[in-house]
Computed example of a mutant assay.
Amino acid sequence: MTVRASVRELETPAGMARAHLLRPTRLRGSVVLGHGAGGGIEAPDLVELTGLTEDGWLVVRVEQPWRVAGKKVATPPKTLDTGWLAVLPALTQGRWALPRPLVCGGRSAGARVACRTAAAVVADAVLALSFPLHPPGKPEKSRADEARLVTDAGRPLAVIQGEKDPFGSPDEVEKALDPAAHVFAARGTHSFTKDPFEVLDEARAWLDQLP
């Protein structure tokens, strides 16, 4: 299968964002991924998920405006949402609109953004990598309500979590979320391992079950 790569720069109220698209010749749907607060789209797990193009998924990795601007520290959550809420309509409308089903997701902070905005961007499902359930050592400061926004809206949610993630173990995440959420354990910590092949395997298996 041939895969065509392209890059789109998109204006948002938070600054310029950049979308890196990998479009296979036979399209099954789209997976749009955001990066974390401490890194970019070159994160090993996000790179690993580009392998979904082999199954016909158009994969988009989105660089948030703060990253495009060369800043080292992520902007506040509301600003991250603002950027994402401008990028998704630009990608899902017009002649080159992404095919559905539309799966939004990302790693860490990007996963939180995808959960918070799933309803607004009309995502068909959400794929969350390393969802930061709580700050390390502070389980009382749970962010489970953000992930529940997805299942409360009746949308499928998958969370792939490192077995030793200090932001929340797979067991913690499973207990905190709606039973409808699918939680998968992968080797490693918040960044998984240097070779996070399990992330692709779990994502592929879950996507195969979507309507």
Rank of each mutant, 00 (worst) to 15 (best):
A119L: 05
A74W: 03
C115Q: 12
W66S: 02
R116D: 09
E54K: 08
R143L: 14
A37T: 15
A125V: 10
R67I: 01
P77E: 09
G36I: 06
R112E: 01
W66N: 01
D152I: 03
P89W: 11
L33A: 03
E42S: 15
V103Q: 08
G39Y: 06
D55R: 12
V113P: 11
A118V: 12
L49K: 13
G83P: 09
R107A: 06
S130H: 09
V103S: 12
V73P: 00
A118Y: 05
P89Y: 04
R148E: 13
T117S: 15
T151S: 01
A97F: 05
P132N: 09
D81G: 01
R155K: 15
I41G: 03
L102R: 00
D152G: 04
L52G: 07
G110V: 00
V62C: 09
R100H: 03
E42P: 01
G70L: 05
P44M: 10
D124L: 10
K138R: 13
W57Q: 07
V103A: 08
L91V: 10
T151K: 10
D145F: 06
P136L: 07
A90S: 15
D45I: 12
E140D: 10
A90E: 14
L88D: 02
G154S: 05
L98S: 07
H134A: 12
V47W: 04
I41M: 04
W84S: 06
R61I: 06
V62I: 12
G56Y: 05
G36K: 12
P44Q: 10
C104H: 13
G94F: 03
G105V: 04
R61C: 09
V150L: 11
R100M: 02
A97S: 09
H35M: 08
L129H: 15
A118K: 07
G110H: 01
V31Q: 09
L58V: 13
L133M: 07
P76F: 09
L129R: 14
